[in-house]
Write a protein that binds this DNA or RNA. Structure first.
Lengths: 199, 199
DNA sequence: GTTGTTTTGTATCGCTCGGTACGGAATGAC
DNA sequence: GTCATTCCGTACCGAGCGATACAAAACAAC
């Protein structure tokens, strides 16, 4: 799929470099990741980064997009499970695994990226929060369908249940970033699942 | 308790200024809070801050200590409840309220302060994580006592249950920082409590 | 009063930040 | 070959960072 272009060819793969940037943002957060950190991890120099991605903010947005598409692919898969209980369990189990992958930083980019903003009004924090709430809404819609299908008790509030699931997921992300191991996160999921109706 | 001292008297109250610093750290995080933000909120100038607290890092550590003593006083109160169920519910309810106080920033200083570190190896993030795990350990000890007293089912893992409770608390903090309102956090607590054994 | 001590305000330090100017290098078009 | 175009690498910019030097100001001791 490499399109023929004029001029000197790019000496690096843009997606591979983006993966390296993801890990730096993941580990240090948006503001904590300096351009020196980023470009040295990406194996390129500053002007190449600016030519390829625009600036630090756009690099981060593209990193988050790629992260959502690849590292969070399990979320979309979980929604395809046949029952609400299995949707939720698959999501929380996969999440616990993703939070503790040996080849990736601990925790979740969306949380590590930044909950608080600097002197600006927390533009990045709001962006990440909106992205997370988007995932929560998708889960709520799947659970609403489950209520319609009689898969969850009538009267169940799908939005509240989705929020609870995301709350556990985010809490686990905070724990993972603190160094808690995979088995402990799964033990938390064991407990959390007891609050989920299982017909 | 104002001790008579030589020299020019301090023109500000150190604890009151610390409360203002707490709010700035709470809102912008450790690295996101600049000395200009801090000292202007504290109503003092830079050299006064350095004379009174040492440097930015020590100011933050004192802010966290004061935060734990005052804004998290509900945690210690919750541990005094008679039953494990009531300990947990009181903790999560008070936590949900504290995360959404109108006169304070949304969320929790310990989470907003920073999950990720800059170019250093995340010294502050580790410090905050250790502080949170300390609270978790205190809760685990209280729940272990509850098991001994027959207040929780025999075979209950108090550490796992404590971790679950803190996970919900931290997830709610993330949600609160994203702007989720108090009632929604309590709805999450409603669901979370269904996983807690209630004899 | 004078002296010693501590705080205050201004003005500044060295450093790192995100971002860029510019010349040379590497390609396709012709 | 020459030209146009694109990318790479160095070296740099202004701005903001955390931290401080220094002298005037405000007190206690005498």
């Amino acid at each position: 799929m490499t399109v023929k272009t004029k001029g000197r060819p790019r000496a690096f793969d843009a997606d591979e470099a983006l993966d390296r940037a993801i890990e730096v943002f993941w580990e240090h957060g948006y503001e904590g990741a300096s351009l020196t950190d980023l470009t040295s991890a990406m194996g390129i120099n500053r002007p190449s980064m600016y030519a390829a991605y625009g600036n630090k903010e756009q690099l981060f947005r593209r990193a988050v997009a790629r992260y959502a598409e690849h590292d969070m692919a399990y979320a979309k898969e979980a929604l395809a499970e046949p029952t609400a209980y299995r949707v939720i369990e698959k999501f929380l189990r996969s999440n616990a695994d993703a939070l503790t992958r040996a080849d990736r930083p601990a925790g979740c980019l969306s949380i590590q990226g930044g909950l608080a903003g600097g002197s600006d009004n927390g533009e990045m924090a709001q962006f990440l929060a909106a992205s997370r709430l988007g995932g929560e809404r998708a889960l709520a819609e799947r659970l609403a369908r489950a209520v319609d299908e009689g898969d969850l008790p009538a009267g169940t509030d799908p939005a509240a249940l989705a929020r609870y699931v995301m709350t556990v997921s985010e809490g686990n992300a905070v724990h993972a970033a603190a160094g808690v191991d995979r088995a402990s996160l799964h033990a938390t999921v064991d407990l959390a699942m007891r609050a989920v109706p299982n017909l």
